[in-house]
Nucleic acid binder design. Sequence first.
DNA 1: GGATCGCTTGAACGTCCATTCAAGTCATGC
DNA 2: GCATGACTTGAATGGACGTTCAAGCGATCC
Lengths: 196, 196
Amino acid sequence: MESTRDRILFAALELFGEKGYLSTSIADILKAAGANAGSLYHFFPTKQDLLISVLETYRDGIYPMLLAPAWEGVDDPIEKVFALLGRYRAMLEMTDCLYGCPIGSVALELHEPDPPVRELLAVNFSGWAGHVRDCLDAASGRLPADIDRGKLATFVLAVMEGGVMQSRTHRTLETFDASVEMLRDHFNRLQADARS
Amino acid sequence: MESTRDRILFAALELFGEKGYLSTSIADILKAAGANAGSLYHFFPTKQDLLISVLETYRDGIYPMLLAPAWEGVDDPIEKVFALLGRYRAMLEMTDCLYGCPIGSVALELHEPDPPVRELLAVNFSGWAGHVRDCLDAASGRLPADIDRGKLATFVLAVMEGGVMQSRTHRTLETFDASVEMLRDHFNRLQADARS
DNA sequence: GGATCGCTTGAACGTCCATTCAAGTCATGC
DNA sequence: GCATGACTTGAATGGACGTTCAAGCGATCC
């Protein structure tokens, strides 16, 4: 049995991802969760507090909800990076290029977020990039020694977010695929250069 | 002498870039433009029509307002690409990583934009990437022959948008710089591989 | 000098939305 | 069986926002 608090939290998580934070009204969330205003405000003093809990849920879910399923049966650390990108592709495909990365959406729709919100967005980005970096570290022998793997992980995240943004705008997977293909080309060259 | 229509249009252009479309109220625009509601609605039947005009202004301004100044004194076509990225860096730096790319912001904050809006966002992306592609074509002799320069331009745009997004969120230029540095590394390898 | 038309004025309107609150339910501990 | 405190109910509130409109201004044309 799911608690009222959880129904509200997950309804918000879904709606913030689908329609964005600003465009989602409290009434939307209440209807989706089957709850009343008083219950919501009992658990979450303001809409922003609800957003914070949603962002914490995303943060805590990066591994179990996103990476673990993406990496099932994938051992090669570099393939793990591309399997992760494949998850975003699948999400775009399933939703006709409507939903991409919820963190990226909120990050750009709130232009001057209050510090706790901004920090949680940053933490989500750092967590994602940190896991990619771990993959790159695990593959360090196959990459040029002088390459900064932290920066490379940041780069991977940038490509993902920028690819998702373009695909959502053009409503085609083409731009996302093109970005990932170019990233793959870069990794091929990095590995070739590491060998020689 | 600037017409009232233009004052409203440019006030909107600036505010949409600074605070986003949804977070900018008509009252904000009126105050910034020193105009009255009736005047605004005389020229722009709805807020969305105003957004459309703003996006058309951006589209028409890509070359004269963005590329021309970025490319002053830069002849090498590959350096032009990085000079363009340098403009975004300068914008981030000037605003303490608050304002990035207005098109990207609006693209992510409107989750299901009406078709005319979505198409204008797409046109802005295509225009930007098209100019980058022209640079790459001009440098085609220095790049591997089998590389798809259209996809590479899309990739550059993705890196820019993803880098801007992370820098705005972390409030540091570090992530943007890291992304551009990795892109530069990729271009170096592309050119080295084209030579051999 | 009067009619026309593009533009301006700014108060008013209606809707939506985040938030509040007084009253109620129900399990737990005493 | 009563008191307590956690949670629920849903109507009410007040403010913000996009939009409307009746009235006015001033230049141009006849």
